[in-house]
């Protein structure tokens, strides 16, 4: 099955900083577990990669109270990086998901610059395709957001990770900044191999019956179709300003959305919230991009990347 799909997807083959991908369609961290949860609906090897659930040095139990709420054309979440910790990931999860033949991209969060280095080194093992630095989780109190909003801090995190791994290093940018281009230039200068963007937008909801915030953590990260125009604008701006490849994400829920991001200069895209509504949506997006290229007699997805710039 893999081979047949490989041939059908010939136009979609992508190489991102040395990571070979069958398609430029990945899944965004926190929305797709470790991939295995979706194995009944998706050919995981057909994805460009699975950015697995955010991993930290020590286990985290995440936030108390309500963690998810639907909003107009989107949703807010405040999971708070619940995960079993990097050791359990290495000993239990990674061996278990090795059989799926997918690019495993490990999203990591540190509470200090040094922790990013420790995590990067621990994850420099076979079976890990790349590391994604999460410097923009809006739902944890320490670390995260500071590294994501201060160019100097983001630079330090990238340098620390690069010094401790031979794997490609992806930095995930936060949209919760005044000027995303400044952040992108800083992390490119620091040596990031790939930039992914955007993480969720900080938001909140108030329950008018209880007169209290809905979410246990008061604020949460907004995602889904409602953020797509913001994400697309940011990808477009960053693509004009840097040379490293971009993985665009933010509200992508169909092939047309994905194509917009590719035209805006993303070399690949990641799908997040849309997986909740349709667990097989990534496969439909791959098919749709393929059809779009075929209709235009284009041989490769490379032919449309950045075409709108």
């Amino acid at each position: 099955m893999s081979r047949a799909i490989n041939m059908l997807d010939k136009r979609l083959h992508t190489n991102l900083a040395g990571i070979y991908m069958n398609t430029p369609v990945l899944t965004a961290s926190g929305t797709f577990g470790f991939g295995e949860e979706f194995a009944e609906f998706v050919d995981l090897s057909r994805l460009g990669g699975v950015m697995v659930k955010g991993t930290t040095l020590k286990p985290r139990r995440g936030n108390e109270g309500v963690r998810i709420t639907e909003t107009p054309m989107g949703m807010l979440n405040c999971i708070g990086l619940e995960n079993p910790g990097v050791e359990v990931f290495l000993q239990e999860t990674l061996p278990r998901i090795a059989n799926y033949n997918m690019n495993v991209i490990v999203n990591i969060s540190g509470s200090t610059v040094e922790e990013y280095g420790i995590l990067a080194e621990m994850l420099d093992v076979p079976g890990v395709a790349a590391i994604e630095l999460n410097v923009s989780c809006p739902n944890v109190k320490e670390g995260g957001i500071v590294f994501g909003t201060d160019p100097k801090a983001a630079e330090a995190v990238v340098k620390e990770a690069k010094a401790h791994t031979k794997k490609p290093v992806i930095l995930k940018l936060s949209p919760n900044v005044t000027d995303i281009v400044t952040m992108a230039k800083a992390v490119e200068y620091a040596g990031a191999d790939i930039i992914s963007l955007i993480n969720t937008l900080l938001g909140m909801e108030i329950n008018i019956h209880t007169q209290k915030p809905t979410l246990g953590n008061v604020t949460g990260g907004l995602s889904g179709p409602c953020v797509k125009p913001v994400a697309l604008r940011m990808v477009y701006q960053v693509a004009k300003a840097v040379n490293v490849p971009l993985i665009g994400m933010g509200g992508i829920s169909c092939a047309e959305d994905a194509i917009e991001f590719l035209l805006a200069g993303a070399s690949a895209v990641a799908v997040g919230t849309a997986n909740f509504n349709d667990p097989a949506v990534t496969m439909k997006i791959c098919d749709g991009i393929n059809d779009y290229l075929a209709q235009r007699h284009l041989e490769s997805v490379q032919d449309i990347i950045g075409a709108a710039l």
Partner: peptide
């Protein structure tokens, strides 16, 4: 309250 229903979103 649930997101995915598949054990992925926590």
């Amino acid at each position: 309250r649930m997101g995915c229903g598949l054990g992925a979103c926590l």
